[in-house]
């Protein structure tokens, strides 16, 4: 749920490090960083190990004991009776259309604002961005009412809609910045050749935006997949809850089955971790986007 940011884009490439070897201080660096990093990943490692331990082992020796027996019962229980399997599928059904629709609509708005002389376009752009910065709390109650009056309360469609609506401002702002950096000559040439605005959008602008679309896509995927508050605001039926919300329900039902709770949180964490490792570079540049580069 992190607020997205706008930071100066990194300079082209930092100049090569000065060629003075710092061997002497190298080991100090690693002596500090290696334990610190281990400490940092320790909670994750611990939860993963816990997820694979058997219930009897945990019951007999406690969660923090050295593991003695491993098994998949935690995962089996979490995916089956714990409903995490179903919830994963729900999350996919929400995340995929929400990401695609967000980026599609945002690219339309960004194209209109970046390439045409729309009166007050800067004000429109900043207003849209401001919408994304609002604390969701100010929207929760009215949004659930709006969904009710549209007759889509408690449907996945409602969840997709609110994700798209709430994220649009930021995506538009970022894409706008990127589209402005595309040389005017390119679109001008196409226009002279007789291309209409829709063709220019589809044939020139969108293909050139691919890197920023990828970065935003990676970012949006984790945001939407990780969401909790919108899901519990517009959904009521337990069977429809996506992963994050289902995880919290499961925790209530398996109070002392730590292997099941751990397995369920690993299940909820794995998809975003995969997105992260696959798109690591995009992901980081996504976090830094919004600049005029």
């Amino acid at each position: 749920m992190s607020t997205a940011t706008l930071t100066p884009a990194p300079a082209k490439a930092s100049s090569p490090p000065p060629a003075k070897p710092k061997r002497r201080r190298g080991w100090v660096f690693h002596a500090v960083m290696a334990p610190l990093t281990l400490l940092w990943v320790a909670p994750m490692v611990f939860v993963v190990v816990l997820a694979f331990r058997s219930f009897d082992d945990i019951a007999a020796n406690g969660t923090a004991a050295w593991p003695v027996s491993f098994g998949l019962e935690g995962f089996r229980e979490a995916l089956g009776r714990g409903t995490m399997g179903r919830a994963l599928w729900t999350s996919v059904q929400v995340t995929v259309p929400a990401v695609i629709l967000s980026l599609l609509l945002a690219s339309w708005a960004a194209y209109a604002l970046a390439r045409f002389h729309i009166p007050g376009r800067r004000a429109i752009l900043l207003t849209m961005l401001a919408g994304n910065l609002l604390p969701p709390q100010i929207l929760l109650i009215p949004v659930s009412r709006v969904m009710e009056s549209l007759g889509i309360y408690d449907t996945l469609f409602a969840l997709v809609t609110i994700h798209v609506g709430f994220g649009l401002g930021f995506y538009t702002f970022v894409l706008h910045g990127f589209m402005r950096s595309i040389p005017e000559e390119l679109t001008e040439a196409a226009r002279i050749d007789g291309a209409g605005p829709v063709q220019i959008y589809a044939r020139i602008i969108m293909p050139l935006c691919r890197p920023s679309l990828a970065a935003l896509g990676a970012l949006a995927t984790t945001w939407i997949f990780n969401d909790l508050i919108w899901a519990i605001t517009v959904l009521r039926t337990e069977a429809k809850l996506p992963v994050t919300a289902a995880l919290l329900n499961l925790q209530g039902g398996y109070v002392s089955n730590w292997n099941v709770v751990a397995a369920a949180s690993v299940i909820a964490a794995v998809p975003t971790a995969i997105v992260f490792f696959t798109f690591q570079r995009h992901f980081v540049s996504g976090l830094l986007m919004g600049s005029n580069k």
Partner: peptide
């Protein structure tokens, strides 16, 4: 500004108004 471009702007803007600004005012 061709008509279709207004549509490009209006559709996302309406979604955001409906899902964000209108609820906020409410």
């Amino acid at each position: 500004v061709p008509k279709v471009v207004w549509l490009f702007l209006l559709i996302p803007a309406l979604v955001e108004v409906g899902m964000v600004f209108w609820p906020a005012v409410n």
